[in-house]
């Protein structure tokens, strides 16, 4: 009797745990299902074009290259900003700050991670963009750079908390040995601790990049949404995420445009899946997860 009950509970729990696998499979399946008809008509080649003109009196064009370069530009800029702040912030919290300061900074970073993206976007729209417009004398403050600064801000908590875990998991004996040999505090941090934690820090940055690539509301609100190929940080761009969010509401279900947006979703999912997969492999391999 009891045995039967125990088995039943275990089966139930296995079922629940398998749900995650099922959900991931369903996500891939449903994105593919909605996107697939595009392959037959107008054909996959259409997606490789360099123009995205989804609404037109003459001919709609669904080339996703400008969306990819848009995401690429914003992500690259955000990564450049995020790395020094994220990594040095982690070093400071893990190795330099003590006592009350640490007790303030750690929850502060957690609160920061929780600020809704739409609030950050709102701040960018009202405060940051006008400031940047003035400083750089631009026609519009809604540029790739504005988006990148805000995205970096959103990814910094991820980078800090995962890097900090990696730094703190470096064995104490390494540090003690370095200090005993006469190295200074900073020498120990940057020549011993940080190199030992490097795999974890790299994984942290990759997860941060994953967050930046997938972020929607901030880029939708502040990057200006102009679908063109450019690598100038002071120009407006349109990212993959913003395109889906802005256009899905007005599209006819099942149309070419609808399917093209699902293709954008597939590209997006593949990129974040790849980044995440590699980061997790690094973290488990070096036991820093």
């Amino acid at each position: 009797m009891t045995n039967w009950r125990e088995k039943f509970i275990e089966l139930l729990l296995i079922g629940a745990a398998s749900a995650s696998i099922l959900i991931v499979l369903l996500i891939f399946l449903f994105l593919a299902k909605e996107a697939f008809p595009f392959v037959l008509d107008p054909g996959i080649k259409e997606l490789l074009g360099s123009q995205w003109i989804p609404v037109s009196f003459k001919k709609e064009v669904f080339g996703i290259l400008p969306l990819i370069t848009g995401s690429l530009l914003v992500t690259a800029l955000a990564t450049i900003i995020m790395i020094p702040f994220g990594v040095l912030g982690a070093v400071y919290i893990a190795e330099i700050a003590i006592g009350r300061e640490r007790a303030f900074l750690k929850p502060f970073i957690e609160i920061m991670a929780g600020i809704p993206s739409v609030v950050i976007g709102f701040f960018g729209l009202i405060i940051l963009s006008p400031v940047l417009k003035k400083i750089f004398q631009l026609n519009t403050g809604l540029t790739a750079l504005s988006g990148a600064i805000l995205l970096a801000l959103m990814a910094i908590p991820t980078v800090i908390s995962i890097s900090e875990d990696a730094i703190r998991s470096v064995p104490k004996s390494y540090k003690e040995a370095s200090l005993a040999l006469g190295a200074s505090r900073l020498q120990t941090i940057f020549k011993v601790v940080v190199p030992a934690a490097l795999p974890g820090i790299i994984a942290a940055v990759m997860l941060g990049i994953g967050r930046v690539v997938g972020e929607t509301m901030v880029v939708l609100m502040v990057t200006g949404n102009a679908a063109k190929i450019t690598f100038n940080p002071f120009e407006s761009v349109r990212t993959m995420t913003a395109t889906i969010a802005a256009e899905m509401g007005e599209v006819a279900f099942g149309s070419d445009h609808y399917q093209a947006l699902f293709w954008v979703g597939i590209v997006l999912l593949s990129v974040t899946f790849g980044l995440n997969f590699i980061a997790q492999k690094v973290l488990t391999r070096y036991r820093m997860g």
Binding site: A17, L207, M248, F262, G265, L268, L269, N276, F277, Q280
Partner: peptide, 29 residues
């Protein structure tokens, strides 16, 4: 291991992709 991979994949899926998925599965299907 596979469950672990699924969970970390799920954690990394962009929120707008969840939107697409919800649209395809719940709203339409």
């Amino acid at each position: 291991e596979i469950i672990g991979l699924a969970i970390s994949t799920l954690a990394g899926v962009p929120s707008i992709v969840f939107g697409l998925f919800g649209l395809g599965l719940f709203v339409l299907f």
